[in-house]
């Protein structure tokens, strides 16, 4: 459902992403791991169509900048980007209208309720705490019911209840056949549901593993991460 083919992203002389290849199928949760500055966020932004790159990215068979791909793609940024003067409910309405969604209100209510924001629907974006902003940002990403979901450090700033709820939701999406890419540093938080992992260093994917492969080989995700990133350092 998501195919990244030979993607390179340069900022001047700095190569942020160097010939990246990865693919994620239906019902797959793939991790993007790596130390700070490895190029994870850049790759996620390239996939989301926010940055220019060389190479090819396809979302459900369509070029990632096409309208069809945009319809199928959900992106939850690392830093929530909300509108100061819109309420929580208006953010949901804005997304619903912008994506021309039908019968969205029940889904919006459910998302807001699951993240315990239902009593704050009339609160403005600028009045929300960092954690609440992150929750709303996740709700906005989920509302169009995208087939491919990109998470950039989704757990940062969330309280334990919200982390638990997000994990449940990711599990649900996985079962519903969505393709999910999660960039994170918090290895503990994703151990339950990942299917594949990509470890990045200096703009390159230096290791790829499937969960089954690792389990067969008796490898541990955390150990693998430290071994690879330490050796590369």
């Amino acid at each position: 459902m998501l195919v990244v083919n030979n993607v390179t992203k340069k900022y001047g002389k700095l190569v942020a992403n160097d010939r990246i290849n990865l693919s994620i199928g239906s019902g797959e949760v793939s991790l993007l791991l790596g130390p700070n500055g490895a190029g994870k966020s850049t790759l996620i932004k390239c996939i989301a169509g926010l940055l220019k790159f060389s190479g090819n990215i396809e979302v459900c068979g369509n070029g990632n900048k096409s309208l069809m791909a945009k319809r199928d793609l959900g992106y939850i940024p690392e830093v929530p980007s909300l509108y100061d003067m819109l309420t929580i409910w208006e953010h949901m309405e804005f997304i619903a209208r912008a994506y021309s969604l039908k019968n969205w209100k029940d889904r919006a209510e459910e998302l807001i309720s699951r993240f315990e924001l239902d009593d704050k629907k009339r609160k403005l974006g600028k009045e929300l705490s960092k954690g609440m902003q992150q929750k709303l940002s996740i709700c906005c990403g989920f509302l169009p019911d995208p087939k491919v979901i990109l998470f950039d450090e989704p757990m940062v700033g969330l309280d334990p209840h919200a982390i638990k709820e997000l994990k449940t939701m990711i599990n649900e999406q996985q079962r519903a056949g969505k393709a999910i890419l999660i960039s994170t540093h918090m290895l503990d938080s994703v151990t339950e549901f990942w299917n594949s992992t990509n470890i990045m260093m200096d703009g390159k994917i230096v290791a790829k593993r499937n969960r089954s492969e690792m389990e067969e080989a008796g490898e541990d995700l955390e150990e693998l991460f430290f071994r690879i990133t330490k050796r590369e350092n």
């Binding site: 309420t87 208006e90 309405e93 209208r97």
Partner: peptide, 22 residues
């Protein structure tokens, strides 16, 4: 700013034009 119930919503626009209403 206290947003009252009847004021909570964009009420109009579909697609790109929602930016203008926002």
């Amino acid at each position: 700013i206290k947003v009252k119930d009847h004021e909570n919503g964009l009420q109009k626009g579909k697609g790109a034009i929602v930016f203008a209403y926002k």
